[in-house]
Design a binder for these strands. Structure first.
Lengths: 140, 140
DNA sequence: GTGCTTGCAAATCGTTTGCAATAGC
DNA sequence: GCTATTGCAAACGATTTGCAAGCAC
């Protein structure tokens, strides 16, 4: 069922499926943790021992190019990926580093710019600050 | 006058001034090109031949931590810096790579999140797509 | 003199590249 | 058999770290 869904997703975006691609897409769809390349690699290496990190890099980039995944650059330290491509914003806590999905305020995902000087294909809204639990903890 | 302004800016953010810090802040304030560390380094090396790239790294990070500059992560390939800290959005052309400032739609810079689960300190709005001139050029 | 700032050199680490092996139609 | 995909190993390059020298009050 999740396999099915991952496969369908790939096909829906015109991406030729393979064992590795299906596994990676499935991971994205079932783990909404905004994983990094390394996290995907480490997790999938258990079930696909021959998996190469190069393949994870290539595949996630392929997904992003086809619009099947989002490449998040909210954290300058690392690039994260999101299998949920429906417009939404992201919040990152500057202390614990956790990423959370945030609903976009009405219409913010489709903001149009003045005078059609640009053709916007992607919009990213990033919030940074302190999450609830880090606010409550004593300052480090 | 520009020196004055850079110095004042540093003081205003509680940053202890130095020749290097003033020069880097002045560069940010007079070149609104969203430069990378390397661009700042190369440009200032002419007037301050002993300048180290490490110092540029340290200084720009210091500025960002004090809110005296913005660290832009719109381009996953490189980090850019912006001396204009007044809330505004950024657009990057996926073909020519140029960054442009964009006015934020009303109130978008101060969006408040549901239920105060987060304490937002910074908001980044990034648009990606094609700029006017790249739209008009024939596909590569 | 003490503490902060600078800058060199080396280390680190995420990412890309080249290319040979493999899988799928 | 041909083409696309995978994966290893090496290369690359941006950023960080350690530490010694320099500067300022």
């Amino acid at each position: 069922m999740t396999d099915r869904s991952a496969l369908d997703t790939l096909l829906g975006y015109g991406i030729h499926p393979s064992v590795q691609r299906i596994a990676i897409m499935d991971y994205l769809l079932t783990h909404r943790t905004h994983p990094t390349v390394d996290e995907v690699y480490v997790a999938l290496n258990k079930e696909i021992p021959t998996l190469s990190k190069t393949t994870v890099y290539n595949t996630l980039r392929l997904f992003a190019e086809h619009g099947a995944a989002l490449m998040l650059t909210i954290d300058e330290k690392k690039i994260c990926f999101d299998g949920v491509v429906k417009p939404h914003a992201h919040f990152m806590c500057r202390r614990c580093g956790r990423l959370k999905d945030v609903e976009l305020p009405e219409g913010a995902g489709t903001l149009q710019l003045d005078g059609a000087d640009f053709m916007v294909e992607e919009t990213h809204v990033y919030y940074k600050g302190l999450c609830r639990s880090c606010q409550e903890q004593p300052q480090a």
